[in-house]
C-alpha cells in the first residue's frame, strides 16, 4: 500500500466525514463504523476527485462500502 497516498486519502476522510483517524482502518464500513450516510459519501467522493484529480462515476461506487474498497478504487484511478 502506498502510505503517502493513503495519508492523503485519510485526510479527506477526516475533513469531510469528521471521523477520528484511528477509526479509518481498511476494514471500517462507512455506514456502520463511521456513521456516514449517502450524502456524506457523495461529498467524500467529491473531495477525493478534487484531491487526486480523478473522476469517479457513480457506477464505480457499487459495492464500495469500506474504507479499503474506496482506497483501492482511488489507487486504480491514480495509477
Amino acid at each position: 500500500m502506498d502510505q503517502q497516498l493513503f495519508d492523503r486519502f485519510k485526510k479527506c476522510a477526516i475533513d469531510v466525514l469528521a471521523v477520528d483517524a484511528g477509526k479509518l482502518t481498511l476494514e471500517a464500513k462507512f455506514k456502520e463504523d463511521l456513521g456516514s450516510d449517502s450524502l456524506d459519501l457523495v461529498e467524500f467522493v467529491m473531495a477525493l476527485e478534487e484531491e487526486f484529480g480523478i473522476s469517479v462515476p457513480e457506477s464505480d461506487l457499487d459495492g464500495v462500502d469500506t474504507v479499503g474498497k474506496a482506497f483501492n478504487l482511488v489507487t486504480s484511478k491514480v495509477s
Binding site: L39, V42, E43, M46, E49, E50
Partner: peptide, 10 residues
C-alpha cells in the same frame, strides 16, 4: 469556478 460536478450535495 469548478463546474457543476463540484456543487455540494448539501
Amino acid at each position: 469556478a469548478k463546474g457543476k460536478e463540484r456543487v455540494s450535495p448539501f
